[in-house]
Design a binder for these strands. Sequence first.
DNA 1: TGGAATCCCGAGCAGTTTTGTCAGATTTAT
DNA 2: ATAAATCTGACAAAACTGCTCGGGATTCCA
Lengths: 149, 149
Amino acid sequence: MKISTKGRYSVTALYELALHYGTGPLPLKNIAQGQGLSENYLEQLMLPLRRAGLVKSIRGAQGGYMLAREPKEITIGEIITTVEGPIAVVDCLLAEAGAKDQPCERACACVTRGIWEKVCDSISEVLGGITLQTLMDNDKGSEHVGCAR
Amino acid sequence: MKISTKGRYSVTALYELALHYGTGPLPLKNIAQGQGLSENYLEQLMLPLRRAGLVKSIRGAQGGYMLAREPKEITIGEIITTVEGPIAVVDCLLAEAGAKDQPCERACACVTRGIWEKVCDSISEVLGGITLQTLMDNDKGSEHVGCAR
DNA sequence: TGGAATCCCGAGCAGTTTTGTCAGATTTAT
DNA sequence: ATAAATCTGACAAAACTGCTCGGGATTCCA
């Protein structure tokens, strides 16, 4: 039950972009250095984020990345599902959505399914309710103690 | 963001025990066969569950496992944290609880921490609110369609 | 026009975690 | 005694994580 660094790094990177929203492209190097992340690794995370339409990129010198939408229009849930895949705490739930496989091989008494559905819904609700704008608003005047990068 | 098979298997195993609550020990073989799980693997999961005081075991012939408490006194959250460790979606949150390390090496602006805390709280709340008894009550009269094992 | 900055993309890789398997020791009912 | 069970530790294949690296493509600027 861990959120990988992919998700965390992506959120902080996009938060950085949100802080510079409207001021032209921000090169990856700046984001990486500012947050203490590996530039090469971060580069890999930007690929799916760009394809998902969360960020836009400008190549060449003086290029960089920028948010494709306003900070208030980008939720943390979107960012995380983009780089980590769907929030399905068990594969069973995925199969139903995609309908590529049988929902479950065993015709067993499925008493646990409801649990995982509730967990997924709960996580989605929390992450879907927080936007980059929310983070910026909350950050003003906070104390900056502990940190998850 | 997956719940491992450890957690899922444990829940179904203990659910099976709940169904037989009060009727003497149930051997592992029955549980494994009934739910289609590996007996050897399940055996490993019972060790922490026993040490955590969720199940009791009786060795020797005619032995087996039984719940150590009433089904309504055992939450899904307890089961999962026992076999998977604490529900901390990022290590940062763990460090605070254990206080063995610095909460975060970097004195960075920690705008994301609040997100992970909310996710953890949300998951804990959902899993802590469901007991084995809940599952038994819900199961009566359900349709048994999809299944997460 | 040339070079520097910057994104784009795929390959690879070391370490950890997951998901088991297996063999044997121990305990107990019959 | 024997069979039925739990207990315990070692081992291993496969998947995943968290990166690194090298080269290519594009664009700005002098």
